[in-house]
Design a protein around this nucleic acid. Structure first.
Lengths: 323, 323
DNA sequence: TTGAAAGCGGTACCAT
DNA sequence: ATGGTACCGCTTTCAA
């Protein structure tokens, strides 16, 4: 393997000059530059990244910490890798499998200067512990952290849910059921608030029989429809789902039960994933890729101490065939 | 930031000794070790990974090259990250978005010693070009490469398809339709071969009307069922799908069209993804995580020049409610 | 058991 | 425009 020294020796210049050529410094004569360049080519030379990292004190690598990778975070991951690479940063994935100790590794790697910054997708450790690593480098989070130094790019679900409700009511639906996700999460809480507010505003009926929690999967969505059909006298005319998977399950089951969608039952999903698209389910578009971009921009802000323009995050309703 | 020198000075020993403590060398007296350890703790010292990488000439980082991340490669990615981290290796994701030039970056990074090894998930560049990077470090591929130095952990789809066909025939189905994926891929070719062989063996009817290509999505699966129903007089009694998404689409559409599954129409998916599980679709289990492990083992083999035990890869049939 | 010093392969400041 | 050289922080060989 050839190195700077060798190139310098062969070209008859000093390491410093060769380094200048490498870094496109203007203070090198064209002649010298050409000569050095041609020798580099001849020797098939490429600079060693470790040496650069050590010398510069930065690696151009950003870590992503998560319990595991699933469908929901795919757009985030893709979006982040994409924007980061545009700025010359690589992305390292750290999965913890929910193990608190293992989850600390990316944070230790921030400290050991293996990565320049960190983004948290999900975490199980005590937020204040994670926060203590902020002194080693910038950290942002997708999930809400409620820690002063760790900003989050998550969105307030109130708005999204409000949008869906508004759409249903405009369409004339007024007996609206809900399939919520994690019972005690901030997201669910905000969605519930939106529901209560909207129902109050329009003086609409709210039945506890129409409210479900811990609904996540296609299967769960099917079950919700079956549960609703237990009370034929008290059926809702629309159902707002925790995510598109739940909506897909609800849709399949409704059809199986001879319910016409959207005439008998309207269905709205959440996140506007591929699934909603392929199955034609009305859904709330969640700009996840934009959140990933913002996560990167927020890091860049601290990394380069520069101004950045954040993407404006906005839910939007994508109407398809289920409403 | 404290470094080896500082620790050494404070402890009254040399850098070498401190380094020995760091690397658990047995040639350090317990007393010395304790003293140094306590000073490290006191100063909250951690070694700098870049310095280690530079000095050792390896980074303990492995790159994964792909056009983009989607559901299909998720189990592979997860499996790889998991096994790699068990051996102390981190995983860096490189996405090319199908851009040939951008796809070269992980390979250049192998050359520049940013990563110790590389795994290719999908690639668009000329395989022989990629192969030329093998001299810089170990490379394995998930997709078939047909290059001597790049071994692949992909599986022969013939076996899997054979399994599905055998199952259907045992169950008494004998008018079997196929929804294939990419028309000219090796995978599709092998599946077609399995189909031809099996049909020949049992002297079963083969109708060109029962064969579809370029079928990938839920939507595509729905369309296949509609197309089949165009010829009511010549309906198959089973359909073997390119993947679980297609099977899911076929299932939904069949039910919508009042076909009883599996009585009127049996449906078999492929890959045994989450979707097949949640929707109760019979599917061929594709041991993707095991392939990811093998990919890592194959790299380790070259990295450490050691013996490794590969996982045995085997398709298996998971029967559910659609057959 | 411990130390001295030569790498590893660059960057960047200070001279000239 | 170019050179000299002190870093960056750790590993490893050779001696003692």
């Amino acid at each position: 393997m050839s190195n700077l020294d060798l190139i310098a020796k062969m070209a008859g210049f000093s390491k410093a000059t060769v380094s200048r050529v490498l870094n496109q410094s203007p203070h090198v004569s064209q002649e010298t530059r050409n000569k050095i360049l041609s020798i580099m080519k001849e020797l098939d030379y490429v600079p060693n990244r470790n040496a650069i990292s050590l010398s510069k004190g930065q690696t151009m690598q950003i870590g992503i910490s998560t319990e595991g990778i699933n469908n929901l975070m795919l757009p985030f991951l893709n979006g982040f890798v994409e924007i980061a690479s545009q700025y010359g940063y690589q992305t390292i994935i750290y999965t913890s499998g929910g193990d608190a100790k293992k989850e600390l590794q990316p944070f230790e790697d921030l400290r050991r200067k293996r990565v320049d910054a960190l983004v948290i997708i999900t975490s199980v450790n005590d937020p204040s512990l994670l926060r203590s690593y902020c002194k080693y480098g910038p950290i942002v989070s997708w999930q809400r952290m409620d820690q002063p130094d760790i900003s989050s790019v998550a969105m307030d679900q109130y708005e999204g849910y409000w949008l869906a409700l508004e759409h249903l009511i405009e369409k004339g639906y007024n007996r609206i059921a809900n399939a919520f996700g994690r019972p005690n999460s901030i997201n669910t809480h905000n969605r519930m608030r939106a529901y209560a507010d909207m129902m109050g505003k329009h003086h609409l009926t709210v039945s506890p029989k129409w409210s479900f929690s811990s609904v996540y999967t296609i299967r769960d969505g099917e079950q919700v429809v079956r549960d609703l059909l237990e009370h034929k006298d008290d059926l809702p005319d629309a159902i707002l789902c925790a995510n598109d998977y739940v909506a897909a399950g609800a849709l399949c089951e409704a059809r199986r039960q001879q319910l016409k969608v959207p005439e008998d039952l309207a269905i709205v999903g959440f996140d506007n994933t591929e699934l909603a698209h392929t199955m034609g389910i009305t859904s709330i578009h969640n700009p996840i890729a934009a959140q990933a971009q913002n996560a990167f921009y927020l890091l860049l802000l601290q990394l380069l101490d520069t101004e950045v323009e954040l993407e404006i995050l906005q839910f939007s309703l994508i109407q398809r065939f289920t409403t």
